[in-house]
């Protein structure tokens, strides 16, 4: 029978075992909290991107555009990707908080509720402060597959035969009822409008502005000018559809 206490003390002295520095544990603890914080920030960004992307969808005209809305519609690919990432970051954050010194004491439901609140509150804040839009453009610029998926919207707004045209304003015509637009296939359009035109807030009729137009293609390509003609009924800003409509003539351009 061995004397555990005596042998342990001898081993400590013989092998010169020392207690690990308190700084090590402090750093370890801080690292855990820092990881938690990073995961929460990533989760907030992911959540705000879902809000941003969903707000970009023109829900009421999806069926006219030939889009069937269900969970696996291509329009939902990128929002779904961010949703999966939000859940992933939330799970990691949950796991990380459990790893903190007293994390095991917290009730799981309370942690989930707190994380959901933080994600929602800061997610909406990020969305309204346009940070999510900025992050979306950064991703679009950095990742080719992401950009390709995001261009789905461009494709949807490249259906003039169905009355949906998107692009960048090239120049405003001399007459108060016309401007030129370059679509996403680098094709020029002359856009006509009249007093009944509805311009959504946020849509500016200025050169280099990216817009969406609802209307009707009224003429095939003019061989001389290589331009097509489109009668605009409604103009929307590229990002979202704008909160309220207003009639154009007399509105700020």
């Amino acid at each position: 029978m061995k004397d555990v206490i005596k042998e342990t003390l001898e081993k400590i002295k013989k092998e010169e075992i020392k207690p690990i520095s308190r700084w090590f544990f402090l750093a370890k603890n801080m690292f855990t909290w820092l990881t938690f914080l990073c995961l929460v920030v990533l989760g907030i960004i992911s959540f705000s991107l879902i809000l941003f992307l969903v707000s970009q969808l023109d829900w009421e005209i999806c069926s006219q555009m030939g889009i069937k809305l269900h969970w696996l519609s291509p329009v939902f690919y990128i929002p779904l990707l961010w949703l999966i990432l939000s859940i992933f970051f939330a799970l990691l954050a949950f796991w990380e908080i459990r790893k903190t010194k007293k994390g095991y004491r917290y009730n799981s439901a309370v942690i989930v509720l707190i994380l959901a609140t933080i994600f929602s509150v800061f997610g909406f804040f990020f969305y309204f402060s346009k940070e999510s839009e900025r992050v979306h453009h950064v991703f679009s610029g950095q990742s080719v597959p992401y950009k390709k998926m995001s261009e789905l919207k461009e494709r949807q707004w490249s259906q003039p035969e169905l009355g949906f045209l998107g692009g960048i304003i090239l120049q405003i015509g001399d007459k108060n009822s016309q401007f030129k637009l370059l679509d996403f296939e680098e094709h020029s359009w002359v856009i006509n409008y009249d007093d009944n035109l509805v311009v959504m807030p946020g849509a500016l009729l200025l050169p280099n502005e990216k817009i969406k137009i609802l209307g009707q293609k009224i003429e095939t390509e003019n061989e001389k000018t290589e331009e097509s003609l489109f009668q605009a009924r409604e103009i929307r800003p590229w990002e979202g559809r704008g909160p309220e409509s207003r009639n154009c003539p007399g509105c700020e351009k």
């Binding site: 555990v4 342990t8 081993k11 400590i12 075992i17 207690p19 690990i20 544990f25």
Partner: peptide, 18 residues
């Protein structure tokens, strides 16, 4: 059990600052 106990005591000693 004695072996485990010794491992426990060594571990506790090393982690006293935690």
């Amino acid at each position: 059990i004695e072996d485990i106990l010794q491992e426990v005591f060594i571990k506790v000693y090393k982690n006293l600052n935690e």
